[in-house]
Simulated scan of single mutants.
Amino acid sequence: MFDDVKVILADDDPLNLDMLEKMLQQFECTLIKTGNGQELLEAISAHPQVDLIIMDLNMPIMDGYQVLRRVKQDVHWHDIPVVVVTADSTEVANVLELGANDFLSKPFNLSELRHRVMNQIRNKRLADFAKDTNAVLEVEVAKRTAALQQALAKALQTEYEISLRLGRAAEFRDQETGSHLKCISQLSKRLGQLAGIPGEQCDILYFASLLHDVGKIGIPDSILLKPGKLAPEEFATMKEHTVIGGKIMSGARDYPVIEAGRVIALQHHEKWDGTGYPYGLKGDEIHIFARVVSIVDVFDALLTERVYKRAFSIEETTQIMSEESGKAFDPQMFGLFFAHLEEFHTLQQSIHTDALPITSITEMIR
Rank of each mutant, 00 (worst) to 15 (best):
L9M: 01
N16G: 03
C29V: 05
L31C: 02
G35L: 08
Q38R: 01
H47S: 07
I53L: 15
I54G: 01
I54A: 01
I61C: 05
D63K: 06
V67F: 02
V75N: 11
W77L: 15
W77T: 08
D79P: 01
V82D: 00
T86F: 04
F103H: 10
F108M: 03
Q120Y: 04
K124G: 01
D128H: 06
A130E: 13
D132N: 12
L137S: 05
A153L: 11
L156R: 12
L164F: 05
R165T: 07
D174L: 04
L181Y: 00
C183T: 07
I197F: 10
E200M: 08
I204F: 10
L205E: 08
V214T: 09
K216W: 10
I217Y: 14
I219Y: 02
P220Y: 04
S222E: 12
E234H: 07
H241P: 04
I244D: 07
S250N: 13
R262S: 10
G274R: 08
Y277D: 04
L281P: 01
K282D: 05
V296M: 14
L303K: 13
E315W: 09
E316Q: 15
E323F: 06
F329L: 10
F334M: 05
F337Q: 09
F338C: 06
A339W: 00
M364T: 03
R366A: 09
